[in-house]
Computed example of a mutant assay.
Amino acid sequence: MKIAFSPCPNDTFVFHALVHGLLPDTPKFDVTYADIDITNKLSVSSGEDSLDILKISYAALPYIHPEYALLPCGGALGRGCGPLVLTRDSLAPAELTGRRVAVPSDRSTAYLLFRLWAAGHVPGGLGEIVVMPFHEIMPAVRDGLIDAGLVIHEARFTYQNYGLNLLADMGEWWEQDTGLPIPLGAIIARRTLNLDAIAAWIRASVEYAWANPEVSRAYVLEHAQEMDPAVADQHINLYVNEFTANLGDAGYEAITSLLDRAAVEGLVPKLDLSYLR
């Protein structure tokens, strides 16, 4: 079975037991490690070469191929874990007018949150949007190659190391505005597979990781791009939570709210989430 997820600590922590054969009655997995922008693009294809299970952004759900369904577990939602807008110089939100901003994907939750926020805080409108791998964004802001960067993942713990300033926290804005958790990464699987079984495997992998955190440590750090172990632990503790085991009503409400708002703004096509469940 073919699966794709990012090399970020939360994903490797969640899927470690599943892809290493530590759970009973599960198949062997062929793993592709890829940045979220790549998996978002892979989710629109179909056919024999398409992947069976993918980690994508919730913002990419309106575009995925109809052969995929949304799974109720394994993804990333939470509170206090939203994307950040960073700048080299201290700027006010209105000063982003006409500026070049780097984003990790133009089909990411981070991007949708940023655009929804900017609609109310950058009256003159944004300038050029530049898509680049998330680990390249902070150096590019630091070096003046772009004016601002939208960052995700462990960047909230490390941006000070680059001498950058926090202009706005998209998650903080979203939570204050809606009272809902922040929907970041989704897990989708091909409809022709046994979706209930796959969801059960993923939940079992999450439970195994929580019960045996040290077992996956070497694997997590191997793929964490020379990340400090303490930062990796912070990353896992923030992004692997109750919603990883089960989206629940609050999780689905958060996803629906995000995609409905984005559709109203013309950022994504309108989507009936019940079609994907």
Rank of each mutant, 00 (worst) to 15 (best):
R142G: 10
Y252W: 15
A218F: 00
Y252D: 00
F114V: 00
D49W: 09
V231D: 07
Y208L: 01
T87A: 13
G124V: 07
A263F: 11
W174P: 05
R107P: 01
L84D: 06
G248D: 02
S46C: 06
Y58C: 09
N194T: 06
H235S: 10
L166S: 10
L84G: 05
T39G: 01
Y33V: 02
I64A: 05
W174D: 01
H20Q: 11
A155M: 07
T97W: 04
Y162C: 13
E154K: 01
T39P: 06
H20Y: 07
L96N: 01
Q225N: 14
T244F: 05
P66T: 03
D143G: 10
L51R: 03
I38A: 14
A94R: 14
L273D: 10
K55L: 06
L259A: 08
R217D: 00
A168S: 14
N246V: 01
G82H: 08
S6W: 01
D272W: 14
V44K: 13
S57H: 06
F157W: 11
H223K: 14
K2N: 12
Y239T: 00
L116P: 04
P133N: 12
E48Q: 12
I198Y: 02
T87I: 12
G74N: 01
P66E: 15
N161I: 02
A94K: 14
L126K: 10
R88V: 04
Y33A: 03
